[in-house]
Computed example of a mutant assay.
Amino acid sequence: MATLLTNLFEDVEYTEPAQAFKEAGHEVITIDKQSGNEVTGKKGTSVKIDKAINEVNPADFNALLIPGEFSPDLLREDDRFGEFAKVFIQDEKPIFSICHGPQVLIDTDLLKGVDIAGYKSIRNDLKNAGANYKDEEVVISKNILTSREPKDIPAFNRE
């Protein structure tokens, strides 16, 4: 599973889903602009980046995880992250995104008509991208599973 992650991620939005995926037998590969770097969550969790975005091919992964907080906004500064996520939508591979994570999906230009949850502050951004914003703990639309915030993590992980 590919995981797009950089500094200022919401700690539990990475650690809890990553642990659930690992317990289910999946490998979780972290991806940022540079491999080998340590990134730090908003609450101090340190995570080593496995791969740089220029070292990976979406075809090599079966799913995508995008944790939230400020990380997605920082990742969006580089178009390669949106292009990477775009392939998952086009290939109908599972995408798991929580809180501000759907900001990366906005850059795919493929959210028109997609039901999607996300943190309340990005609801208009999602609507402007053509998505149908839902204020629900878990929303599944096509191959995209989204949630609003950390309190939704149990439902997010269950689905």
Results as ranks from 00 to 15, higher is better:
residue 5 L to I: 15
residue 109 D to K: 15
residue 42 K to E: 14
residue 101 G to H: 06
residue 106 I to T: 11
residue 107 D to P: 13
residue 54 N to F: 00
residue 137 E to L: 13
residue 31 I to F: 00
residue 30 T to Q: 03
residue 10 E to I: 02
residue 101 G to S: 05
residue 91 D to M: 04
residue 1 M to F: 06
residue 16 E to G: 03
residue 144 I to H: 09
residue 5 L to T: 08
residue 132 N to Q: 14
residue 34 Q to N: 13
residue 148 R to D: 08
residue 145 L to K: 15
residue 72 P to D: 07
residue 23 E to S: 09
residue 114 V to Y: 11
residue 90 Q to Y: 00
residue 101 G to Y: 07
residue 132 N to Y: 05
residue 128 N to D: 14
residue 47 V to D: 05
residue 136 E to N: 12
residue 93 K to I: 02
residue 56 V to L: 00
residue 123 R to F: 13
residue 5 L to S: 08
residue 95 I to H: 01
residue 100 H to F: 06
residue 149 E to Y: 15
residue 39 V to L: 06
residue 133 Y to G: 12
residue 66 I to G: 03
residue 93 K to R: 04
residue 97 S to W: 03
residue 57 N to I: 00
residue 4 L to M: 07
residue 113 G to S: 10
residue 121 S to M: 12
residue 117 A to I: 09
residue 103 Q to K: 09
residue 128 N to W: 05
residue 23 E to C: 01
residue 103 Q to W: 12
residue 63 A to I: 06
residue 156 F to S: 05
residue 1 M to A: 11
residue 126 L to T: 09
residue 157 N to E: 04
residue 48 K to A: 14
residue 75 L to N: 04
residue 43 K to W: 15
residue 73 D to K: 07
residue 90 Q to N: 12
residue 95 I to F: 00
residue 141 S to C: 07
residue 6 T to K: 04
residue 92 E to V: 08
residue 42 K to R: 13
residue 29 I to H: 00
residue 91 D to L: 04
residue 154 P to E: 04
residue 136 E to I: 07
residue 75 L to Q: 03
residue 39 V to A: 08
residue 16 E to W: 10
residue 118 G to M: 10
residue 15 T to Y: 11
residue 112 K to G: 09
residue 107 D to E: 15
residue 10 E to K: 00
residue 70 F to K: 12
residue 148 R to C: 11
residue 25 G to V: 01
residue 157 N to W: 01
residue 114 V to C: 09
residue 40 T to Y: 09
